[in-house]
Amino acid sequence: MMKYCLQLILCLLLVSSSVFANAVYDFIVAQDGSGNFKTVQEAINAVPDFRKKETRILIKNGVYKEKLVLAESKQFVTFIGESLDKTIITYDDYAQKKNIFGEEKGTSGSSGFYIYGHNFTAENITFQNTAGPVGQAVAVFVSGDRVQFKNCRFLGFQDTLYTYGRESRQYYKNCYIEGTVDFIFGSSTAVFDSCTLFGKTSGYFTAASTPENKKFGYVFLNCHLTGNAPEASFLLGRPWRPYAKTVFINCRLDKIVRAEGWSNWSNAANEKTAFYAEYKTFGDGAAAGDRATWSHQLTDSEANLYTLKNIFGDWEPTK
């Protein structure tokens, strides 16, 4: 009788666990075959086109070497990694690498993950491009609107994170982003909240290409700019396009940041159109009095305008 009861309890626990797992996740990706799919792209493909409800995908620990595409028809998709440092999505393309026709892939073609679908969220995942210091080599290319990354890592060298979409709004919370030249770049409106930017070798943290009609470009709130690069080897940003907008608010800047802070990308005309600003930055790299004369130090009232509501309008990202 006791043996029967124990077997019944175990059976009920297994059923309960299965029901709970199915309630939390719609699909599970596991390389060992214990989930619904062995690859991430298979799980993406299984999401119904233009589904209006969230599809939650658990990605179990593993190194997934895949060149992923989240099509525009795959909306409200959420990736949740089993653990940040062990759930890794990676690829190794780079701009000068040749495609099957012998043509260079280019910067956009080098990405390991293309995000076109709106309302995408990722948590606890490492995205990396392992091509190394070979020029432009994108880890993630984001075109979709209302995209969020929480507790994620972006690893690479030049052009690590491409915020591509001109109409795209993006929110990064507690993320780690590393690279060398222009390793956060593009035309999207993006907020980086409590993130770590890690500079390697030397270069520029940002290269925004904000469209002229956009009020906000890149906004960094309570971030830490650090790295293993030599002292004074990094600038906060340079304008990839004339109307680039980048603002650092309440950020800690380590000694790798050069005193002038900003570059005009060898074009003095950019100084009249780009908007580069700081507010209460601190640390060894915070040198308000030595910054480029065409950059700005925000007043209290100006800094108060940089709220998520003002920046994102009718979209409120989850924190």
Rank of each mutant, 00 (worst) to 15 (best):
A232H: 12
G227V: 08
P242Q: 01
P239F: 04
T226R: 00
F216T: 12
K215F: 05
W240S: 15
G237N: 09
F220V: 13
F220Q: 14
E212G: 09
A232L: 04
H224G: 00
V219R: 04
P242S: 10
F220I: 11
N222D: 13
W240A: 14
P230T: 05
N228M: 05
K245Q: 10
F234N: 01
L221H: 07
L235G: 03
C223F: 02
S233F: 04
L225P: 12
A229E: 03
F216V: 08
V247M: 06
L235V: 14
K215M: 13
K245I: 15
G237R: 05
R238G: 00
P230K: 05
Y243L: 09
G227T: 05
A244H: 06
R241D: 13
A244C: 01
G227N: 05
P239L: 08
Y243V: 05
A244T: 06
N213K: 13
A232D: 15
E212S: 13
E231Y: 03
L236V: 09
P230D: 13
L225N: 09
T246F: 03
L236C: 02
E231A: 10
P230Q: 11
K215E: 15
F234R: 09
R241P: 00
V219M: 09
K214L: 12
N213R: 14
N213V: 13
P230R: 03
N228G: 13
N228L: 11
N213C: 07
A232G: 08
C223Q: 00
C223A: 07
K214S: 12
T226P: 01
N222R: 07
Y218T: 05
A229Y: 02
C223D: 12
P242W: 05
A232M: 14
F216Q: 05
F220S: 12
Y243D: 08
G237P: 11
G217L: 13
G227A: 06
N228D: 15
N228R: 02
A232C: 02
L221G: 00
G227K: 09
E212D: 11
H224Y: 13
A232T: 08
G237A: 07
E212K: 15
K215Y: 06
W240G: 15
C223G: 14
L221Y: 01
A232R: 13
L221T: 00
T226K: 02
W240I: 01
L235C: 01
W240T: 12
E212T: 08
F248G: 04
C223I: 02
P242R: 10
F248K: 01
A232V: 02
N228I: 14
L236E: 03
S233V: 10
W240E: 15
N222L: 00
G237H: 02
N222P: 01
F234I: 01
N228F: 11
A229T: 10
N222K: 06
G227C: 07
E212H: 07
E231T: 15
F216L: 11
Y218H: 12
V247E: 06
S233G: 08
L235E: 11
R241H: 07
P242K: 04
